[in-house]
Computed example of a mutant assay.
Amino acid sequence: MYTVKEIAKCLNMTEHTIRYYTDMGLVPTLKRDKNGNRIFDEQSKNWLIGIKNLRGSGMSIKAIKDYVDLCLQGDSTVEERYKIIIEQKKKLEKKLKEMNERYKYIEYKANLYLDIMNHNIPDSTNPGTWSVSDLEPQEEKSL
């Protein structure tokens, strides 16, 4: 059994987040000790791991609650849960693609600055130094 502090440390989450998730009803196996303090068993820990991953994927608290409720209904909801996960996967794939594009841009900029610092090319990244001819649509500038 884990206390809020112990489970938070174990799962690298804040105590506040753990309390919030339990208050929202996302951990159906939550138990309380004789003083009313939250205590977590392995099953509760598993729920929190799932919630952490769903939340980390961008899923809303409401959507996670709906998902948890479906899980509690059992095998008859497997197809519906699958659809929820596939939809979230599509959203993640879109975000991943966007992040890869941003990463490539930052990688390009870092290499550009290395070339400038190594005096391989002049600094063309500073809009304050652009001349009127630089602003003609020959080549797009990159801030």
Score class of each variant (00 low, 15 high):
K90E: 15
C71P: 06
R32K: 13
I86Q: 12
A63P: 08
L30H: 00
K34F: 05
L112W: 06
F40E: 11
S60L: 09
V78K: 06
Y67Q: 00
N53R: 12
D41C: 04
A110E: 09
W47N: 10
L48A: 14
K94D: 08
I116K: 01
R55F: 10
E93D: 12
K97Y: 06
F40M: 04
L30N: 03
M117G: 03
M59K: 06
R32P: 01
F40N: 07
K89Y: 14
I39N: 11
I51S: 09
K90Q: 14
E107D: 15
D33W: 01
D33F: 03
K95N: 13
N53K: 12
Y103T: 05
R38V: 00
Q73N: 00
K52C: 15
I116H: 01
L114I: 09
E87D: 10
L114P: 00
K31C: 05
D69F: 05
K62V: 11
D33A: 08
V68W: 05
T77N: 08
E80M: 12
E98P: 00
R55Y: 10
L72D: 03
W47T: 07
I49W: 07
T77Q: 13
N37M: 10
K91S: 08
M99N: 13
I39M: 14
Q73T: 00
K89M: 15
G74N: 05
G58P: 02
R102W: 03
S76T: 04
L30P: 02
M117Q: 08
T125R: 10
L112P: 02
I106S: 13
A110M: 14
S60K: 06
E87F: 00
W47S: 10
Y113R: 03
Y113W: 11
I86G: 02
K109E: 14
G74I: 02
E98F: 05
L26K: 01
Y67R: 00
Y113P: 05
Y67D: 02
Y82Q: 12
R38T: 01
A110T: 07
C71H: 10
Y113S: 05
C71K: 08
P28Q: 12
G36S: 13
Y113V: 11
K65R: 12
L70K: 04
R81I: 07
N53L: 15
G58K: 00
R81E: 04
Y82V: 00
V27N: 08
N111Y: 09
L96N: 01
I106W: 03
S124A: 13
I61M: 14
V78F: 12
E101H: 05
D33R: 01
L114Q: 13
E79D: 15
L70G: 01
E80K: 12
D41M: 02
E98W: 02
K45A: 11
I86R: 06
E42H: 08
I51T: 06
K62W: 05
D75L: 05
D69I: 05
L92R: 03
E98I: 05
A110K: 10
N100H: 13
T29V: 06
D69Q: 11
W47V: 06
L112E: 12
R32G: 06
G36E: 10
S44E: 11
L114S: 14
K83L: 12
K104W: 00
Y82R: 14
Y67E: 05
R38G: 10
K109L: 15
Q88L: 03
F40T: 01
S124N: 15
G56T: 03
N118V: 00
K65P: 03
M99T: 13
V68D: 07
